[in-house]
Amino acid sequence: MPTRPTTRTRPATTSNGVGYHWNWGIFWEMSPEGTGTYLDMIVQGLRMTLITAALAWVIAFIVGSAIGVLRTLPGRMAPLAASAWIELFRNMPLLVQLFLWYFVFPEILPAAWGIWLKQLPAAAFLTAVIGIGFFMSARVAVQVASGIEALPQGQRAAATALGLTPAQTYRYVLLPMAYRIVLPPLTSELLNTVKNTSVALTIGLAELTARARAVQEFSFQVFEAFTAATLAYLVINLLATMAARWLEARVRVPGYGRA
């Protein structure tokens, strides 16, 4: 009679085969960096992730809105320029873009500028903010443009007929409704911005994922380190989603979308 194969549970081991020692207490131990506990390392990473994501989002939102508006302007030049921006920043992988900004961009500048740029104390941080900001701006632009295009053609005509300038038409008539329409997809682009900050560990940014990896390298507590990081990302996403829901309810237009 054939023996029934035993179900193998994956043993909690590290690659060297030694049994894994769970130790949640690790976070209260001092790290060899000498600047605090392991928990402090995670918190520092979390803070860097939040600051980077927030500033990158500000850039993405402002630049993305401007490009999105350009894309919907009458005429040929503005939409063409907007499409070029969108295709350029959306189709190149983020990792490649960060490398280009960080390693290649200083080299193609006049030598003095390049050197000054490379010696900036926060070079990785600035690169991440701008690189992720521009990358996300292309995605925000697509959303904003689709929101504007979703509005009836007559809205622009009505605003123009009342004597509003194109700038006033966008400011008071088109954008307020367009943003409302694309609030849900914009929320997920915000969450993408948070997640994308982790790519910046490749240029040396001490953000959450990088710090979790450092915790693991010093302490060998890989599961604890990445569980902490995962929980932190989860909490950020939950808070951002809740904030978006609250905003959606706050700006809901009475009677709009009624059949």
């Binding site: 007559g154 005509a157 004597g163």
Partner: peptide, 29 residues
């Protein structure tokens, strides 16, 4: 824009601005 402001226009599909109260629709321009 100044000239258009003095030419009133009424559309088939009304084209009121949905996010503004009726009063604000009348006050904006």
């Amino acid at each position: 824009p100044r000239l258009r402001a003095r030419v009133g226009m009424v559309f088939q599909h009304f084209e009121l601005f949905p996010h503004m109260r009726v009063l604000d629709n009348l006050c904006l321009a």
